[in-house]
Design a protein around this nucleic acid. Structure first.
Lengths: 397, 397
DNA sequence: AATTAATTTGTATACTAACCAAACATAATT
DNA sequence: AATTATGTTTGGTTAGTATACAAATTAATT
């Protein structure tokens, strides 16, 4: 429906987003920034003050003497960080990670807990419910948790329906609805690579025509693409699963039944293989290997160097294809391989520049800034976004 | 800016889109469809009637006797087709094609004229200006042309800036602005594959989560992806140029400097090579070959069959990669190879089904319905869309 | 058959939300 | 004291909603 409350809804979210991204400022400055009258902004701020989402900030007493402008000085209005909180939850391999956002999208709390063996969906729901109750019992956020985001390493439709989650054996499961029914706040479910990508861009928004490709390198090789602050999804939710790009005419057998898939050349098991020069058993993959290799690299260890270079060479082939298809402005790497990713980026710069279509701008290659909790942070960002940015605004017929 | 006129703007376009896509109906039905009150719809229709964009349609006199509902019968309101027109222009290889849309997005006129040798941008602008003046001199659309869309076979930014147009030697050229300055109506410039794809979906909208991949097969191999009724673009406008997907480890040298690109295996020249088993000179490519081969296919000609199968086998490899990346619900083929595309689709169905990730829904494979004028029609659809659908509505901060 | 009831359409009127425009009090600098 | 900018107040506009009502039809009743 599009009635006049739509206008307020849009403007309120525009205002909150400006405050989050660009910081506190007086009403008059907000009015100019949003092309609204001061009167309109006054009315909106009045409302937001009542709801505890913004606060007036006492201006510092003449911080730079003589630098003030003429005219009556304004009163800075900024987000009230404690006015709302958002819980992000990552359902990972053997562990659940929590990250708590405040209204200004700062991480104010993190926690990792072990995940019980073969948990049922109900187990996970109650785990989240307990964490939520726990948070509310503390002074930090008694009544302020506004939404919960949950990520899973599997296929998720945009409405939070889990199509397939192989590592837990879950299939065809409306996890978002289950959470919604149990938790008295809106819940959103997202694929973990998508969430990590979203978390990455959320704190530092990109220009409007930016195209960000994110790759999550760990036990598998997940991907996400963000265009215009929106995640790209496929018809089944299977889009941007970059692990199955064909990069070689032969290679190890992939879980998808084909040979030559990127995922079989770029994952923790493959890294271990490149390093030890021996086949690795599925169950003896060393999750700490990237850290160890990173240490060895600082000591100029030739074996470590070789392993990283081999991985990088394969990944570069995949990235060239991805770049030629999406023409991204930016490629971000994240995931469990974090410790060696800076080296991987360095090793790929040359081949990437040479492999892409002439005339195409070479995308920047960077490592995710979010670290171990990137998926949980991304989940919190998803929840924050749904509640406070212009998103769930469907104006189509 | 988001003020109350935004609400009317949104609702008016929602209303017009419903009338275009779903047909004429009484005000009360529109109110239900749009979740507005009848009073609001009355007010909007009053305005649209004054502007000549809609008209009341006399109900057929009891077409199905006894089938009428109780209550006062409504007066159908429908688009007034002659109330607005949109000119689509394709700048093609050696030819310019025009297609004229009426308000209901029906093609009411087409024309193809030869393009002068090595035309300057100014030549093309004045060609379009002459066509526009010509149309206005006729009774069909004296004052009603609302917008012009132009397609070019090159790289175009979303603001209509032409980055590179190799076949005409144009580069870094604000064609949209040049047209705008000359033509007294809004002008939009789009890449030809993008426009053809957009034209294809415009008349029969897809469900919200549909992902449509379009491939334009002719002298080159262009592509487009439409998600949520929006075209995917890259950072430079170079996204979805599927011609440079790597499908073989070796092959003819591509214009991009690499070997193994899809475009070197799937284009008119390659088709001729597969058919004659001889290398073909750049300047002796037979533009009518697909038609000839199509005729031979009906006579079970083995050479024609071989040529089509060889082309299909290469294209299938590319489509498998594209499908695994985008997870499309639908793949549409178009372009100069039109006469043989039904056969190509048939030949690719098997390999496509086998090559994609298990669990992914197999996309439907179809041939474009628009025919020779697909780009011009797409250009007209682009113009129609910009003026009458919810599109140029940027609510971001 | 005529009347009445029921139902639905389209319009009119009053009300409301949220914007803009303009005036004004306030608080600083010049 | 003059100037300038902020924040609030007041009045006006737009485009909705809610409600009431006349109009046009079918269905039911007398």
């Amino acid at each position: 429906m599009a009635n006049q409350t739509l206008v307020r809804h849009v403007n309120e979210r525009r205002l909150l987003t400006v405050l989050r991204v660009e910081g506190a400022r007086p009403r008059a400055a907000l009015a100019r920034r949003l092309s609204l009258t001061r009167a309109a902004v006054t009315s909106m701020i009045d409302d937001l003050l009542k709801r505890g989402l913004v606060r007036e900030i006492a201006s510092p007493q003449d911080p730079i003497p003589g630098k003030r402008d003429v005219g009556r000085p304004g009163i800075d209005v900024g987000l009230n960080p404690g006015g709302a909180h958002f819980l992000g939850v990552e359902i990972g391999v053997g562990a659940v990670r929590f990250a708590l956002f405040d209204l200004s999208a700062e991480v104010v709390d993190t926690e990792a807990v072990p995940l019980p063996e073969a948990p049922s969906p109900a187990d996970v729901v109650s785990l989240v419910a307990r964490k939520l109750a726990d948070l509310r019992s503390k002074k930090l956020c008694r009544e302020t948790v506004r939404a919960v985001g949950v990520t899973v390493p599997g296929l998720v439709r945009s409405d939070g329906y889990v199509i397939n989650l192989p590592i837990l054996g879950w299939k065809k499961l409306n996890l978002a609805r289950m959470l919604d029914q149990e938790l008295d706040v809106p819940c959103y479910v997202e694929n973990n690579a998508n969430a990590a990508a979203f978390g990455e861009i959320y704190s530092s928004p990109r220009p409007n025509d930016a195209v960000v490709v994110y790759l999550k390198l760990g036990t598998g090789c997940g991907g996400a693409v963000i265009i215009n602050d929106r995640l790209l999804r496929g018809a089944d939710g299977l889009g941007t699963e970059f692990g199955h790009i064909h990069i070689e005419s032969d290679g190890p057998l992939c879980s998808c039944g084909q040979r030559g898939c990127l995922e079989t050349f770029v994952n923790l098991k493959a890294l271990q293989r490149y390093f030890t020069r021996e086949e690795v058993d599925e169950f003896h993959v060393d999750l700490r290997l990237p850290g160890k290799i990173a240490v060895l690299l600082t000591k100029q260890d030739p074996e470590a160097r070789k392993a990283v270079d081999e991985l990088s060479a394969h990944l570069a082939k995949g990235l060239i294809n991805i770049t030629n298809i999406f023409n991204p402005s930016e490629i971000v790497l994240g995931g469990a391989m974090l410790p060696i990713l800076a080296e991987v980026c360095e090793a790929m710069k040359q081949p990437l520049r040479r492999g892409i279509i002439p005339g195409m701008t070479v995308p920047t290659l960077t490592v995710s800034r979010l670290g171990e909790f990137e998926c949980a942070i991304g989940a919190a960002a998803t929840a924050h976004h749904e509640e406070f940015d212009l998103s769930n605004l469907d104006l189509s017929t």
